[in-house]
Design a protein around this nucleic acid. Structure first.
Length: 371
DNA sequence: TTGTGTTTTATTGCCTCC
DNA sequence: GGAGGCAATAAAACACAA
């Protein structure tokens, strides 16, 4: 044992190296040697070991036979007899062993099963030890108060370790869950990304087609305008104005599509950063189903991007002028209704609302990350 | 029986609280 | 300043495979 012991005089414990205290209690007539000799005569080697261990006949523990005998039923249930005390099983040199024992420095001895059970129960009630309880427990168990305090201290340390292991397991499993979610969302994102590219190509093709028609219309309008100007020179040509607006709007639409595309496609970094936010998923930020729309508004600067089922018909069998549609509905209908064509079946989600575009509500985190 | 890893008991030094 | 808690550590006791 390294160094000198810390002396706890106030608790009355002897600590290491206090000296052999023999029978100073109410049953002081029972000297240590008498006690041991009687045990040797009446007990098997095991019970001798048990009784001896339970009463902790260490130099510091033998401060009185009262504490020595106060704890009942001290059979040591488990444990081998490989301990130091096996020496007492040999009758022929028992006295020599006793002398040898008491000239040896203090040895550690484990508490009995019953002592430990008693302490465990007490620990369950309260894991901190007030002085009164410590004294009482020490009395009940035939231990030094200091031993009880040390046991509680070590027990608290073990409890803390176990608790940390539990916490670690919980965190580990929740991390794995979130990791799986994240990987699924990445896959989903890639799918959407390719869809956006496809639709952008489509849109550009339509735009090309539209401008060709516009050119034809312009030629026709010029002829009309010439005829009309002859009749009503003051009147402004309505069709021309209409068509010039159409051109502008087509441009606006293309810009908006690329804008939204970049929002969807260019959010790879956001997903990465969202990784670190995963651990804050309790935040209402991620539970807000409307949040995605709000973010989209912020990105586009247009509060009119409310993705509702669009009544506009963008099919090609309509007049080409139908291409020019209010931008408030054009983009969503170009991009999102096509989701129904994907492998994923969103047609019958478990829970949906008007803000999650038909995605299962639990997938809303995706939108929080993407937008 | 022995070597080795684990558990338990105990010590030490530092810190906080009263 | 003393009491008590905690982290780190030592060392004995114990379990178990070879």
């Amino acid at each position: 044992m390294a160094g000198s012991g810390r002396m706890y005089t106030s608790t009355g414990c002897g600590g290491v190296g206090v000296g052999v205290g023999v029978g100073v209690g109410d049953d002081s007539s029972n000297s240590l040697s008498v006690f041991i000799q009687s045990q040797k005569r009446s007990c098997s080697s095991h019970s001798l070991d048990a009784s001896f261990l339970s009463s902790r006949p260490s130099p510091s523990a033998f401060l009185g036979s009262r504490s020595m005998m106060s704890f009942e039923d001290v059979n040591r249930v488990s444990g081998s007899t490989r301990s130091f005390f096996r020496a007492f099983d040999h009758d022929e040199n028992g006295d020599d062993d006793l002398d040898e024992y008491f000239h040896q420095p203090e040895k550690k001895r484990r508490l009995t099963v019953n002592q430990v059970q008693f302490l465990e129960k007490s620990f369950e009630v309260e894991n901190k030890l007030e002085p009164e309880r410590k004294i009482q427990l020490a009395k009940d168990l035939g231990l030094q108060p200091r031993q009880v305090a040390i046991w509680f201290q070590n027990r608290r340390a073990r409890w803390k370790t176990k608790q940390l292991e539990k916490d670690y397991d919980v965190l580990q499993s929740s991390f794995n869950d979130l990791k799986n979610d994240y990987e699924n969302l990445l896959k989903e994102k890639d799918k959407l990304k390719s869809q956006v590219l496809l639709l952008t190509d489509k849109l550009q093709a339509k735009e090309k087609e539209g401008s060709e028609n516009n050119a034809e219309l312009c030629v026709a309008n010029e002829a009309d305008q010439a005829a009309l100007s002859e009749e009503q020179p003051q009147q402004k040509p309505i069709n021309v104005a209409h068509e010039s607006v159409s051109e502008v709007e087509v441009e606006v639409e293309v810009e908006e599509v690329s804008k939204v595309s970049s929002i969807v496609v260019g959010k790879q970094e956001d997903l990465s950063s969202a990784k670190s936010d995963i651990f804050d998923s309790d935040s209402p930020h991620y539970a807000d189903g409307v949040h995605s729309n709000s973010l989209l508004e912020m990105e586009t600067g247009d509060s009119s991007y409310v993705f509702e089922p669009d009544q506009s018909d963008l099919s090609q069998d309509e007049d080409d002028h139908k291409l020019i549609i209010n931008k408030t509905v054009l983009l969503p209908t170009y991009i999102f209704p096509k989701l129904e064509e994907t492998d994923e079946d969103y047609s019958d989600p478990p829970v949906t609302n008007s803000c999650n575009f038909g995605f299962p509500i639990e997938d809303n985190a995706f939108w929080s990350w993407t937008y």
